[in-house]
Design a binder for these strands. Structure first.
Length: 559
RNA sequence: UGGGGCGUAGCCAAGUGGUAAGGCAACGGGUUUUGAUCCCGUGAUUCGCAGGUUCGAGUCCUGCCGCCCCAGCCA
């Protein structure tokens, strides 16, 4: 058992185990299948499955499918795939609120019989008007004191389909003057003549969240029902159901704060709008904060779990910087990913003193800190591609790369010197003529002279072409949730596509394999669009880049 | 302005009356054929503010301030 951090929820759980209140911890992850799971859900999944696993308990994956109007099978399939991919297993415990529709209905009748629920025939608008406001108490519905028999009859006829949508609603009879709005006679059942994805047309009345969720928890013997802060006000209602119905197992609801990531949005509605408007390609677009998107982007599941662990579990509103997530991703990939060379924005270099037609195979380590991963051979020849950014005609003093007359080491190969810069009619640099020093070959060279910079390259004659997608944050402000219209703060440059040159060994890389393109970042073949002739790579995350910082600071100093 | 929560460094976060852990970021320095990795070092006389209790307060009490959530027949 790993040493998990003792956040306030784990403390409660351990206290309950120590005191003998519970012998076994049972939790549940209860998504509504009306959208894809996102980074916020990752936290809930890790928490629910985590605390149970750490204590030898069990976790249910339960679909909160009480509103057939919004739900779809596509989402249930995606949810299962995503939870599994994240590394969790619910075993036999895959359930649905709809599994309990029968028991839920019976419990509702029981409340009616107890005089604790009534059928209200007011319209939705009238009910709203009777509810009062945050500072003013509500007023009782004229139907509030219907006799039990009449309520029972009406409720049964609601179920039998005798009424149209909205004609009646079953309400709990609690307190219309409660300062807690959730206790002002909340709706328990509404009429919806619509097929349910699982129960078909068996039902035309569907239970509301509070009622269904509380009882589903009780039915499954959930010990700790963990949810987010906005449900804090619902806890008195949760407890009210338990107090009145007295199920044999009494769950406890505990709330924690959501995980918000800076520069992203997690509202299903808003993510859906971005898809509709073509801002992104779908729920699994690599820029999306969905599990599907992050998986396609190349984020390892272990990195996501590590990220969530670093965030902690508290009740404080949080907006976590992207850097924390990126750090988790780099930390995992830095160890696991093999190194390769690729040039994203190619500039041709001709080695004028290198024999035409000659090819040398250069040995390169697959991982500088893990020699056990071995080496590979990379072909070297007279013409190579280097990165455009690695050459500057008028370079600042601290620029350690190539400049006219300057020297640089080609990684795993030779030291070269820039002799001539060739430009087109518009003055753009299109080619560099350089000479190499034969005594400086990596590993076997006779010269031990050193140069300040080392750059990556790809032999032009052997280069494998690929489309590489470079991603950036989707929004330009840290908290797009806080602006009037999130579409106003979209980052227009969240996707850049380049035609890159890869070293030959990359030709056979498959989706699912992540590698580091040295000096550039971590990349992986795209799981949707990559194929053997038409290679498509995603940049998962860049490497830390202290040169970029120096450059930025220099720019700011000038302005 | 009713009710429910939350305020410890730029972002997270330990701390459970005994003298402010840790991570990320930032900033210095070292190693390095990735300006990566790795390694070393630098941060709170102070915990939203003001009083009070106490030998002693981030922890207890009082008042104030700020932020978040709630008026779906959504979850």
């Amino acid at each position: 058992m790993s040493e998990a951090p003792r956040d306030f929820i784990r403390q409660i759980i351990h206290d309950d185990l120590d005191s003998g209140k519970h012998d076994e911890i049972v939790t549940r992850f209860p998504p509504e299948p009306n959208g894809y799971l996102h980074i916020g859900h990752v936290m809930s999944i890790c928490l629910n499955f985590g605390v149970a696993a750490e204590t030898g308990g069990r976790t249910f994956l339960r679909y909160d499918d009480t509103n057939p109007h919004k739900e779809d099978q596509e989402y249930v399939d995606a949810i299962e795939r995503d939870v599994h991919w994240l590394g969790f297993d619910w075993g036999e415990r895959l359930t649905h609120a709809s599994d309990y529709f029968g028991q839920l209905y019976e419990a509702a009748e029981k409340l009616v019989e107890m005089g604790l629920a009534y059928v209200d025939s007011l319209s939705a608008e009238e009910i709203r008007a009777h509810r009062g406001t945050l500072t003013e108490p509500g007023t009782n519905s004229p139907y509030r004191d219907r006799a039990v028999d009449e309520n029972l009859d009406l409720f049964r006829r609601m179920r039998a389909g005798e009424f149209a949508d909205g004609e009646h609603v079953l309400r709990a009879k609690i307190d219309m003057a409660s300062p807690n709005m959730n206790l002002r006679d909340p709706a328990l059942y509404r009429i919806r003549h619509i097929d349910h994805q699982r129960t078909g047309d068996t039902w035309c009345i569907y239970p509301m969240y509070d009622f269904a969720h509380t009882l589903s928890d009780a039915f499954e013997h959930i010990t700790h029902s963990l949810c987010t802060l906005e449900f804090e006000d619902h806890r008195p209602l949760y407890d009210w159901f338990l107090d009145q119905l007295e199920p044999p197992h009494r769950p406890r609801q505990i709330e924690f704060s959501r995980l918000n990531l800076a520069y992203t949005i997690t509202s299903k509605r808003k993510l859906g709008m971005m898809i509709e408007n073509g801002v992104v390609s779908g729920w699994g677009d690599p820029r999306m904060p969905t599990i599907a998107g992050m998986r396609r982007r190349g984020y390892p599941a272990t990195a996501l779990r590590d990220f969530v662990k670093r965030g902690g579990v508290t009740k404080k509103d949080k907006l976590i910087e992207m850097g924390v997530l990126e750090n988790s991703v780099r930390e995992v990939l830095g160890v696991e990913a093999e190194r390769r060379m690729a040039v994203l924005k190619p500039l041709k270099v001709v080695l004028t003193n290198y024999p035409k037609g000659q090819v040398e195979m250069m040995e390169a380590m697959n991982h500088p800190n893990r020699p056990e991963l071995g080496t590979r051979e990379v072909p070297f020849s007279r013409e190579v591609w280097i990165e455009q950014d690695d050459f500057m005609e008028e370079a600042p003093r601290k620029f350690f790369r190539l400049k006219p007359g300057g020297e640089v080491r080609l990684r795993n190969a030779y030291i070269i010197q820039c002799d001539e810069v060739i430009k087109d009619d518009d003055g753009n640099v299109v080619e560099l003529r350089c000479s190499y020093d034969p005594d400086t070959r990596s590993g076997t060279g006779t010269s031990d002279r050193k140069v300040k910079g080392t750059i990556h390259w790809v032999s032009a004659a052997h280069a494998v072409l690929a489309t590489v997608r470079l991603y950036d944050r989707l929004f330009t402000v840290p908290n797009p949730n806080a602006v009037d219209d999130f579409m106003d703060v979209l980052n227009p440059d969240s996707l850049e596509t380049v035609q890159a040159m890869l070293e030959p060994s990359l030709a056979t890389l498959e989706p699912g394999d992540a590698v580091q393109f040295e000096r550039l970042g971590y990349f992986c073949p795209d799981s949707e669009d990559h194929s053997s002739p038409d290679r498509v790579f995603n940049r998962i995350v860049t490497l830390r880049d202290s040169w970029a910082k120096i450059e930025k600071q220099a720019m700011q100093g000038q302005n």
